[in-house]
Design a protein around this nucleic acid. Structure first.
Lengths: 140, 140
DNA sequence: TAACTCAGTGCAACTATGTTGCAAAATATA
DNA sequence: TATATTTTGCAACATAGTTGCACTGAGTTA
């Protein structure tokens, strides 16, 4: 198994276990975001559902993954960039979901525009999800 | 029951039934967005869960309600403004969720900023959810 | 490398959430 | 008011997510 996977786990004070290695590896080898169900099935010899839930939860807590809410009420998970690894998120990018191929991706290079709020309101976090058609699907 | 409720239903070619009246009335008397569970419980004498699901689905299809995805994987529903009533949405506003009181509201007066996308990409719909603290909770 | 400790896993059982088919009831229309 | 059509409620099911507990396996120390 990839030594990078091992490093990420250790850097976050997590024991290196088979399920964590496999699940984390899925994210490193996929550019797109994955839903819980994707993980449960893609993991080949699949793990107990409970293990997948707990592993994802742990990764989110540690800042290894972040969640992307989607309109159809399913949460997807995606890798955080390196500067999230220390435990605090820098989720200043937004997300794109292709309505044709279903691909969900982080648009890392685009910074969230500032949003206006009513007076007295305080914003902690701004989630932006763009639904549309990706470049590959438009060419078909 | 409110005659306004009756009007909205008829304008959308929907039969006026007790459950539709009650559920729609909940939205008219609440400024905040409601989750499925809220509706099921707030409706007092509660309706069958299936009826609530189907009623909400119908309202969304007709453009009476729109959905707001939240990070915790629960979809909330909110009334559309009058110009949605004819069946096509004008969801050019964004949403705010207060992390203290849980209130979810539509910020009708703020227009979605334009977002940049990679070349070739096409945006159909942009969902923005701002998490933070509302004015009332900040003063406490 | 053997033994110990504790985090992590898997199972079972459960709750919550959402869906479908169908018969009964209510609504709209003439 | 009678009839055609919608809507509802029930039952049964499917999927998603949670909790407690016993066991396994990873990390650590000698």
């Amino acid at each position: 198994m990839n030594t990078k996977v091992h490093d990420i786990l250790r850097r976050n004070q997590l024991s290196v276990t088979a399920s964590r290695e496999k699940i984390l590896n899925l994210f490193l080898t996929n550019t797109r975001a994955l839903a819980h169900a994707d993980i449960e099935h893609k993991a080949g010899e699949r793990f107990d559902r409970v293990t997948v839930y707990r592993t994802l939860q742990t990764f989110v807590e540690k800042g290894i993954l972040h969640t992307i809410p989607t309109a159809d009420n399913s949460v997807k998970y995606a890798l955080c960039k390196n500067d999230c690894f220390e435990g605090h998120h820098h989720d200043n990018h937004y997300h794109f979901i292709c309505s044709v191929c279903g691909k969900t991706e982080c648009l890392e290079d685009f910074v969230i525009p500032s949003v206006k709020l009513p007076k007295e309101y305080l914003a902690n976090n701004v989630e932006i999800v763009v639904n549309g058609v990706c470049g590959i699907c438009r060419k078909k």
